[in-house]
Design a protein around this nucleic acid. Structure first.
Lengths: 346, 346
DNA sequence: ATATTGAATGCAAACGTTTGAAAAAATTTC
DNA sequence: GAAATTTTTTCAAACGTTTGCATTCAATAT
């Protein structure tokens, strides 16, 4: 070991032959401290690089000013946008964000939550992992609730859980996307859906199906294929779609990544976008505006979600006595670009 | 306030009319504890949801098992890959990663470092922000050094700083990219460079220039234009390039985002890739394999960097006495795809 | 019956800081 | 010059946990 012990208030007290209390007060500009004493101590502290041990303070005050952000991944545009939003509101308030990436893994999520509680985190923002969703376990959430640590769901959620949540209206976003394709004149619309069980996947699927139904279009099972949100997971499914006897003339991807993967396959096949195949994604990731053709997509206000989630957290912290949990649903917005803009056909 | 006080070891002791020590030992399976006592206490603890207060332990043991990861952004593939690599090695060892995003902001970086030190973080992985780079300030780093907290530079670095570092060989990656373009037969190679001052920008620029020189090709100032790594920042520069009297027949982008932006502009102009304009990016981001045409790029081993950085940290922690700082430079690898593969021309 | 052993538990200090109350020191007042 | 007042400093407890050492109590050996 080569780490020298950090200098403490006691060290300084010894140096000045005074009590730790005096040093503490001097450093905190307490009025009842002699001006000279204060100056000397502050100077010396600076000189030796004294830095308050926040750990001890946390213990004393039972306040850690740290918040947990538990997400399945940080390699998506949306997740990083949410984190940015949380950051924007909470960092200036002195909170530290402890970002935990679960990789869609239940055990890891559980471990992180337990660790956050042990570390006396003051609040947790959670987007549950896919495994958690699949397994249906939620005891690890119970312990958060039991501790009365504010728990805010972001994005994905357990329907039947008593907490605040900030989510995007995936359903209407998907609905609008499909409605747009229909309006343009596409007849056979496929959906590259997300993993089963996740709210986002299911809501978008539902929007897709309901919209087809509204317009009296048949819902063909073979036009709905699973992906895992990643670009490469769209390749095989899209190929399968295009090889169908009656292939789709439009594809609605569960996110931009998947839509971009599909775009590649469609072009490889020699088909034109949007003339032969229309394409819509989801997320409005930065790159979607610069693909060729640019990608029609549904914008999710990630930053805003982060900021709203922060607000929900703060509400709960400031609430006296009983607190009613809030659900915020932000609208998503269709962004029409080239990939779906062929001249409308009846 | 509605948060009920978490149950402590003292609470349990009171309940069993025994001392806190006994409870502590019982919970930790200390051998000198009566089997019945142990079982009763453990059961009760579970029942009331006791969870060890790690804050107090941190104070007692002077160990926080938390590490700081300070990065300018998490919205790039590379950065998230690095974090994933750190995570892979350090999470299983019980370390918590505290991810701090500086948004390229010097003051924020400074604040984060100071906070991490105050929280007695046991090590810091740092990719300095652009502002820090520009300003040339580094007092905030001095305090880390002074504290003998292990500091590992990832990616960007201060050349003249006494620490360990894990970086990618940007220079040779860029060199290889440009050499490849030259070999294929491109004659006028432009470079969309990164922000001034950053090691990655400068190293790639240097690789580009040195390679041109090696092949006796002129370095045309007007073919080198700045971007900020983001896709949209490539649009105007690329347009300018293509409108030159003697436009480039190939473009080397400082990263994939920029290259993809350029790709869009080139195609909008009606030029073909790779026939009319060759294109190479940097990062091997997932999407680069699926653009149309797919993007030739230089792969940066982000995950590996994270893992190597972890190793450097662990070395330093386990070192007895004086520790010699290490510099690890991992090779980057040229990934040849469609965007540069026209049939070679002399 | 007493000494010896062994098992089980308790005591007290420690980690670094803050803070109300008490004490000490310096200053003012009469 | 003593009392009253004000200024400055110290004391002690608290936050929750662990741990070396001391203690207690019962069982065994002499």
């Amino acid at each position: 070991m080569n780490s020298s012990r950090p200098v403490t208030i006691k060290d300084i007290a010894r140096r000045f032959r005074c009590s730790p209390s005096t040093v503490s007060r001097a450093l905190n500009d307490h009025p009842a401290i002699n001006e000279d004493t204060r100056k000397n101590i502050q100077e010396y502290a600076k000189e030796v690089g004294y830095q308050r041990n926040e750990v001890s303070l946390s213990l004393l005050n039972k306040k850690t000013a740290s918040l947990g952000v538990v997400v399945p991944t940080i390699s998506n545009y949306y997740e990083t946008a949410v984190i940015e939003g949380l950051h924007t509101v909470l960092q200036p308030m002195g909170y530290t964000l402890n970002i935990c990436v679960t990789n869609e893994n239940y055990l890891l999520e559980k471990e992180y939550l337990s660790k956050l509680l042990s570390n006396r985190t003051e609040g947790i923002f959670l987007s549950v992992s896919q495994e958690t969703y699949d397994s249906g376990y939620y005891e690890h959430l119970e312990s958060v609730i039991q501790r009365k640590t504010p728990l805010i769901f972001i994005d994905r959620e357990y329907e039947d859980f008593e907490t605040s949540r900030a989510t995007v209206d995936d359903y209407h976003g998907a609905f609008a996307a499909v409605e747009h394709l229909i309006t343009i004149g596409y007849k056979q619309i496929a959906h590259l859906k997300g993993p089963n069980g996740l709210t986002v996947s299911e809501q978008r699927l539902k929007g897709y199906i309901d919209c087809l139904k509204k317009y009296n279009m048949s819902v063909r099972e073979e036009l709905i294929i699973n992906t895992n949100f990643k670009v490469e997971s769209a390749i095989v499914p899209t190929k399968r779609l295009l090889e169908l006897a009656s292939p789709p003339d439009a594809i609605f991807g569960v996110n931009d990544q998947v839509a971009i993967g599909a775009m590649r396959v469609v072009k490889d096949k020699g088909l034109r976008i949007p003339q032969d195949v229309g394409l819509v994604g989801f997320d409005n990731s930065p790159i979607s505006a610069y693909t060729f053709p640019s990608l029609t997509t549904v914008s999710r206000p990630g930053r805003k979600i982060g900021m709203e989630a922060s607000r929900l957290f703060l509400n709960q912290v400031n609430a006296s006595g009983d607190f009613l949990h809030e659900s915020i649903v932000l609208p998503s917005e269709l962004i029409i670009r080239e990939s779906s803009l062929r001249t409308p056909q009846a």
